[in-house]
Design a protein around this nucleic acid. Structure first.
Lengths: 174, 174
DNA sequence: AGGAAGTAATTAACATGTTAAATGGTTCGG
DNA sequence: CCGAACCATTTAACATGTTAATTACTTCCT
């Protein structure tokens, strides 16, 4: 039925050119990407049904947990770069899901908060989202999931200062 | 150092609005995203120095491992969606890093292969890339790294058929 | 005070992610 | 042999990732 038979178009592992490199499917970035995609694939349809992208949902959730927050701090919390955040906030504000005002003490800073409409949307989406998360947890095992998260955090922390030049410390040579 | 002192702007955990939701920083998608970003942050500067994006590098590496490959299969291997791959192949071909020709047996299919120039570029970048990977492995521990990869693959496999409707097979109930 | 340097946010420009639609080619049933 | 259904690839349209440049405001130094 499915003519999905590979093993054609030439040969299996024809290394006519061969550079000494990792097998690629075994690379850590690829493994992380694939795992994350497998997870997000579960959530995207539900979010899309409510007109939200993954990043917009991240922002709303972050806002729902606080009274108000400055843009820079929001970028940090939601793990988004400034330019992305800027565009998304413009859009969410136009949809009246958030509110924005300038800080009184520093006119450069903007303070963002979620609106009543935004809260209503969250309350609408949250149950499905939590159900999906619960299903994933059941499938993978709560214990194992916690362990995975620990290992991911350890990886992140371990790499925190590898190629990143320490500010305040002179770089030996160059 | 880091004036990352929260606990201002009102209060610490001001739950003026509170929706029953996971703490967010503890969400699996976020953990995977952060970990992957920490890893990629190590590679990007080197790739950028050679005028390559992460995805372009993925494609060149995949091509270096085979003689030739069809576009659909390449998309699968490099974990890219069709439209992205289409654009990138156009660009790489214009830079003469790859070559493309139509399949003789099926005029719809295109067959792609790496060029001599592309191979030279890979040989130029690979040493640095491998050195970075080695540094990460040392930092995190080879054993632990292998374990992490196993857990990531298990997660991916476990989620393979959760929300995806099985074609031809009825979904029992859970 | 006043200009140099620094900072917060946005804008610009290009590359990719994501879904839908279009294009060109193939296969199959009648 | 012809059209319907199907398939591989590309194009379209919009949202985000990523780095550099701008803009507006603030601080600091003399």
């Amino acid at each position: 039925m499915t003519p999905k038979t590979p093993s054609k178009a030439g040969h299996s592992s024809s290394d006519s050119h061969r550079v000494p490199m990792r097998e690629f499917s075994r690379s850590l970035p690829m493994a992380l990407l694939r795992a994350r995609e497998a997870v997000m694939r579960q959530f995207r349809p539900s979010l899309r049904q409510h007109g939200l992208t993954e990043q917009q949902w991240r922002i709303l959730r972050a806002l729902a947990a606080v009274d108000a927050i400055e843009v820079t701090e929001l970028a940090h919390v939601a793990f988004l770069l400034g330019p992305s955040l800027s565009r998304i906030l413009r859009d969410l504000e136009a949809r009246h899901l958030i509110e924005r005002k300038v800080a009184k003490t520093d006119l450069r800073r903007a303070v963002v908060s979620i609106s009543a409409k935004g809260l209503k949307l969250i309350e609408l989406v949250a149950p499905t989202s939590e159900a999906i998360y619960a299903a994933i947890t059941r499938r993978y095992g709560a214990r194992k999931l916690a362990e995975l998260q620990d290992m991911l955090r350890a990886l992140e922390d371990g790499l925190a200062g590898l190629g990143a030049p320490e500010e305040g410390g002179a770089e030996p040579d160059e």
